[in-house]
């Protein structure tokens, strides 16, 4: 059992506040992804959990035990580094067995575990090679095998796939997810790649400027973003925003159209995902500016009352720049945000 609790963790580097009062609980065997743009503090948070960085304030608990005063090796964790950190002067076998040797395990136990994890990661034929003789993908596998061989309670991964090419990344994504589910460890996975986050996570913590903006399941983060930042960060292309003014009785005026919305008196932001709009007889009047055929879909960038929005339409539609489209937002997919707080309004 290894539940991770991050309690009131903050971190400052000199005068720069990298993390603000982070609170997060990661359930046993959960796959938690920390997602955010570079500089948002996600790697710092991971390194604090690992013990490679010390929090300025706050506590880290792993499996019901407070660990923030312990050395990394005493926390029951293993880590996969962004640049793999596969030791160049050791063979693959010695690399995978490094942590086991440090624990002074018997030779046959080291051999057994190294061979088992190597087989799991499909690198059993590379055990006698040095890292200079391996490809990036193979090094990645060695780094993961080295972590798994420790049979840790918690596995921490810092952008482990970011140095691989696109095809390999897709392949490793699925494989890593399977292997980690099998190993029954709790995982924290740092990435800036939302596709990686969506496809692998049990839960995603979206981070922005040293804070966790939303921690929820991938589909929840996608469908019900808690803040404008999440709505604009997740999804490719991201959510569209239009200013809305209240027309009373839960009616809102958006780009000249009247739509149903929440009961509020101050102006709000109307938000809709590009794929949640259809061509219809009534709706938002949009002038197509750029049309990008993407095979199954058309990505249309259009002008609605001076604001650019994007719509994803079926590629059967014949749309060319200059056409005036009538886009009807799917009512149950419309979201509203308060421009003052940037938070979602129910």
């Amino acid at each position: 059992m290894a539940e991770i609790q991050i309690k009131n963790v903050a971190k400052t580097f000199g005068t720069y506040q990298a993390l603000h009062d982070i609170n997060l609980t990661i359930a046993d065997q959960e796959f938690m992804v920390l997602l955010g743009a570079s500089g948002c503090g996600k790697t710092t948070l991971l390194r604090i959990v690992a013990g490679l960085e010390t929090a300025t304030t706050g506590e880290i608990w792993i499996g019901g035990r407070r660990v923030d005063h312990l050395a990394p090796k005493d926390r029951g964790i293993a880590m996969v580094f962004q640049n793999y950190a596969v030791f160049p002067h050791m063979t693959v076998f010695e690399n995978i067995g490094f942590g086991l040797r440090m624990q002074k395990l018997a030779n046959d136990e080291v051999k057994r575990r190294v061979e088992r994890t190597a087989t799991l990661m499909h690198i059993e034929q590379l055990l006698n090679r040095y890292s200079g003789e391996l490809s990036g993908g193979q090094r990645q596998r060695v780094a993961v095998a080295r972590a798994l061989a420790m049979e840790p309670d918690v596995i921490l991964m810092d952008e482990p796939l970011s140095n691989l090419d696109a095809l390999l990344r897709m392949e490793m994504r699925a494989e890593l997810k399977g292997v980690l589910a099998e190993s029954k460890t709790t995982a924290i996975y740092v990435t800036h790649d939302q596709v990686e986050a969506m496809s692998m996570a049990d839960r995603i913590s979206v981070m922005h400027q040293g804070k966790i903006v939303q921690a929820a399941s991938p589909i929840e983060v996608y469908r019900n973003p808690a803040a404008e930042f999440v709505a604009g960060f997740i999804g490719n292309p991201p959510m569209n925003f239009l200013s809305a003014t209240p027309a009373g009785n839960g009616k809102w005026t958006v780009a000249g159209e009247t739509l149903d919305g929440p009961n509020a008196t101050a102006p709000l932001q109307f938000a809709i995902r590009p794929e949640d709009m259809q061509l219809a007889d009534t709706g938002l009047k949009a002038t197509a500016k750029v049309v990008e055929p993407l095979g199954a879909h058309l990505l249309v960038t259009c002008d609605v009352n001076g604001t650019m929005i994007r719509a994803i339409l079926d590629s059967d539609h014949k749309v060319k720049p200059g056409d005036v489209l009538t886009l009807a937002p799917q009512p149950d997919r419309v979201r509203w945000f308060d421009p003052q707080t940037t938070l979602a309004v129910a």
């Binding site: 690992a50 013990g51 490679l52 050395a71 990394p72 090796k73 964790i77 293993a78 880590m79 580094f81 962004q82 640049n83 950190a85 030791f87 160049p88 002067h89 490094f98 942590g99 440090m102 624990q103 080295r146 420790m150």
Partner: peptide, 27 residues
């Protein structure tokens, strides 16, 4: 010698002396 190797060694349980012997000296 990249810092990441020392961090990896530390996470995987190498003491400062072991890090010197197993990382610094060979590299």
């Amino acid at each position: 010698i990249p810092k990441e190797y020392y961090e990896a060694a530390e996470v995987f349980g190498a003491s400062p002396w072991k890090r010197f012997l197993r990382i610094t000296l060979p590299m």
